[in-house]
């Protein structure tokens, strides 16, 4: 199982699609940097097709920086830097999409 990180905004559709297509059951996806823009409800449908057993996270500091903490879609769990580390430790590898 893998932790996938994505740091590109949804406007970079190629990167987002590449990442979503690479997710398997049991993986975790953490949105960081501009990646957190994809937490907006308007983009929620992009995440409909991915495996039901993929858990979705977004990094708190990046959400806060962009004023997205109150706007984000409910299916994303907010984690701080410590939570990022925990996710990386729980999974057996990290795959970085950028």
């Amino acid at each position: 199982m893998a932790l996938h990180t994505l740091n590109q905004p949804p406007g970079n559709t190629q990167c987002l699609e590449r990442c979503l297509n690479a997710l398997s059951d049991g993986d975790a996806l953490l949105l960081i940097e501009d990646g957190v823009l994809a937490t907006l409800p308007a983009h929620a449908s992009r995440f409909d097709a991915i495996a039901a057993n993929v858990s979705l996270f977004a990094l708190q500091a990046d959400l806060d920086a962009r004023g997205l903490n109150v706007l984000k879609d409910a299916r994303f769990t907010v984690v701080d830097d410590g939570g990022f580390v925990d996710l990386a430790c729980e999974q057996d590898k990290v795959v970085s999409w950028y």
Partner: peptide, 16 residues
């Protein structure tokens, strides 16, 4: 895409 998922699963380290 399925085969790519399996490639990621079957390797210990993934570098992009």
């Amino acid at each position: 895409h399925n085969a790519i998922q399996q490639l990621i699963q079957s390797h210990d380290v993934v570098l992009t």
